[in-house]
Structure formats: structure tokens, C-alpha cells
């Protein structure tokens, strides 16, 4: 058939999705084993008494917020980072269409954000991500640190947001084609997540826990 929109939509809803999910679960399982099967030596130094120890779980939570003074030193990183993450997760988990997907996968759903609000949060995420890109290219530290992998991860995150917004608003190409592109972009994100720095979505919580535990046993709430 020569309508790529519809054919592509069928593919991304069918085999594409199954493939992406398989690559994701394969990659995630492999990476988690690679990381967590390395092992860790027991710390023989006696920790502080329990009541003086810092809590690793609190570190996991605390690291959602900057240590005092850090925000002022890097406002662009913080603002774009927060807005992007809030917008992205709000849309991912609370847009009606996505909840339908989760309902399909999990067997249950939850209330959605109102369409205009979800739409607005999507725009917030898109703008924030664009700002993050500009900041990455202009900030001396981030420019210095950035690798191709950082830009790849950026694109993988940005495309689903952009195509989702464009599909919802029927911008540029037909809805069919845009929805197909949106699903394709989302599947790319899913499939490559374990192999890119995007795996931080899972590992940071463990990283925070380890650090919180190390600081905590010494009596410091990190």
C-alpha cells in the first residue's frame, strides 16, 4: 500500500511495539545484571549508632532537590530540568491516551489530566527541553562534558514529545501519519533507553541509595 501513514501506524501499533518492548526488556534485564551482579564489598567500619545514622531512603528523596546554593549557581539547568521532567512525566502518565495504554498493559488505569492541562504540560516539556539543549550547547561545563550520547538521548526524548503534540493538534501532516511517527518515536525511546544514559531513570535511585548509605552510616544525612 502506498500510504505510509496507515501502514506505518499498523506496524508501530503491532510488530513495532512488540519489538520495542522486547528490546527494552532484553536491554534492561541485561544492563541491570551487568550493573548489579558486580557485587560490593562489605563495609567493615562500624557505623554510627542507629539513631545518629542518615537514612538512605531520605537521600533518595532529598536528591530531587538541590543543595542550598546550587540552584542559584545553575538556574538554567535546574529550571529546564525540573520543567522538562514534570511535563514529560505528567504527559506520559496522565494524558488520557497514555492511560489507555497503561490500562491495556496493566489491567487498570487512573484518572487523566484534563486535555488542555496535559496539552499545556506537554508544551512546557517541549520548551524546557529546547531550553535544556540550548543550555547544553552554551554552558561551558555542559558543552565540555557533552558527547554524542547526550545529544542522542536528547533527541530520543524530544521526538515523542514533539510528535505527540503535533499529532494532537493535527499539525503539518495527517493525524494518521503523525500518530504513527509519535508511536515510532516513543518505541525508539523505549528500545534505546537501556543502552543510553536514559537508563538513569532507573539507576539514579539506586545510586542515591548507595551514596545515602555511605554518608548515612557515618552520621551524615546526604
Amino acid at each position: 500500500m502506498n500510504d505510509p501513514g496507515y501502514e506505518l501506524l499498523l506496524w508501530v501499533r503491532g510488530p513495532g511495539w512488540i519489538l520495542a518492548l522486547a528490546v527494552f526488556s532484553f536491554g534492561m534485564a541485561m544492563r541491570l545484571f551487568e550493573i548489579f551482579a558486580l557485587g560490593r564489598r562489605e563495609d567493615l567500619a562500624p557505623p554510627r549508632p542507629a539513631e545518629r545514622q542518615g537514612s538512605p531512603m531520605r537521600t533518595v528523596w532529598n536528591r530531587f532537590f538541590p543543595v542550598p546554593g546550587l540552584f542559584e549557581r545553575a538556574p538554567a539547568t535546574h529550571v529546564s530540568g525540573y520543567l522538562f521532567h514534570i511535563g514529560f512525566f505528567a504527559v506520559l502518565f496522565f494524558a488520557e491516551f497514555h492511560i489507555q495504554l497503561f490500562r491495556h498493559l496493566l489491567g487498570f488505569g487512573w484518572p487523566a489530566l484534563s486535555a488542555p492541562l496535559a496539552d499545556a504540560l506537554g508544551v512546557v516539556a517541549i520548551v524546557a527541553l529546547l531550553a535544556a539543549l540550548v543550555s547544553r550547547m552554551r554552558d561551558p561545563v555542559k558543552r565540555f562534558l557533552s558527547t554524542a550520547g547526550d545529544y542522542l538521548a536528547w533527541a530520543l526524548t524530544f521526538l515523542p514529545l514533539l510528535t505527540g503534540w503535533m499529532a494532537y493538534h493535527h499539525v503539518l501532516v495527517s493525524y494518521t501519519r503523525m500518530v504513527a511517527l509519535h508511536l515510532l518515536a516513543a518505541e525508539l525511546l523505549l528500545a534505546l533507553l537501556p543502552f543510553t544514559k536514559l537508563i538513569h531513570a532507573v539507576t539514579i535511585f539506586v545510586a542515591r541509595w548507595y551514596t545515602g548509605e555511605q554518608f548515612g552510616r557515618k552520621g551524615v544525612q546526604a
Binding site: 545553575a74 539547568t77 562534558l145 538521548a153 537508563i199 545510586a207
Partner: peptide, 10 residues
């Protein structure tokens, strides 16, 4: 875990 978690935020 640490190396996997770094996003180069600076």
C-alpha cells in the same frame, strides 16, 4: 551504578 546514572548535567 554511578557511571550509568550520570547525565552530564554539570
Amino acid at each position: 551504578t554511578f557511571f550509568a546514572s550520570c547525565v552530564h548535567c554539570g
